[in-house]
Amino acid sequence: MDHLDELESRSIYIIREAYRQFKDIAALWSIGKDSTTLVWLIRKAFYGKVPFPVVHIDTSYKFKEIYAFREKWAKEWNLKLIVGRNEEAIKAGMGPERGKLQCCTALKTDALKMTIDKYGFKALLLGIRRDEHGIRAKERYFSPRNREFQWNYKDQPPELWDQYKTKQEGEEHIRVHPLLHWTELDIWNYIKREGIPVVELYFAKGGRRYRSIGCEPCCSPIPSDADTIDKIVEELKTTKISERSGRAQDKERAYMMQKLRALGYM
C-alpha cells in the first residue's frame, strides 16, 4: 500500500470502530475540504450507505457556494443531512460586527450544542488534523468532551495500537477524529487521486483563492494563481509564507482602548 492507501485504511478503521461503539453518532460537515474528505471516507467505509446523519452547522453567513455545494452533494450522495442553526440568535441579529468571538459562540458552538441536544448524539466525527494543532502528541482519535465542550487534555488516557477509549458517565459526548494523522498536503493529494468534489472557492480566480472556507465576512482570500489541484499542491509544497488571517479586530481594539483608559494608560 502506498502512503495515501495507508492513511485511508487507518481512517476507515477508525470510522468503523466509532460506528460500532456508537449508534447515536453523526459526522460534522462544514463543507470544507477536510470534512468533505471525511464524508468521502465514511461513504467508503459503509459502501455508499452512510448509516448516520451528517450535520452542517449553518451560521447563515456561509458563502453561497457552500450552500449550493451542500444541496447538490447531499442529494447525490443520499446523505441524511441535518442543518443546525441557532435561529434565535440569527433572528436577534447576531453577526461578526458584534464581536467575532460572541458571534462564533452563538452561531457555531451554541448551535452545535442545541443540535447535539435535540438529536441526542453521543459521538461526533470531525475532520480535524494533527498538523493544524501542533506537533505535540496531545490529540487523540477518541476525545471525550463534557457538557461545556471542554477537553481535559492534561489527563487523557493513552491511545495505542488502534485501541480507543469507550464513553464514560460524565462525558457528554466523544469526538472522533479519523483524519488526525493526515496533513493538508495529504488531503489535497487524496482529493486529486479520488476525484473528490470541493467547493470552487478553493481555486484561484483573479489572482486570489481561499485557503480555508467558512463564514463569508470572516474569511479572506490569499493571493494565489493556483486554479487546479496540482497547482494547489505545488503551492503548498513550496510556500514558506505564513499569513495571519486578515480578520477584523475592531471590536477587540475598541474594548482594549476602553480598558487601557480605565487603567490610566491613555
Binding site: L101, Q249, E252, R253, Y255, M256, K259, L263
Partner: peptide, 8 residues
C-alpha cells in the same frame, strides 16, 4: 487576552 491584546 483580548484577542491579540492584553488586559490586566
Amino acid at each position: 487576552a483580548v484577542g491579540a491584546f492584553g488586559d490586566h
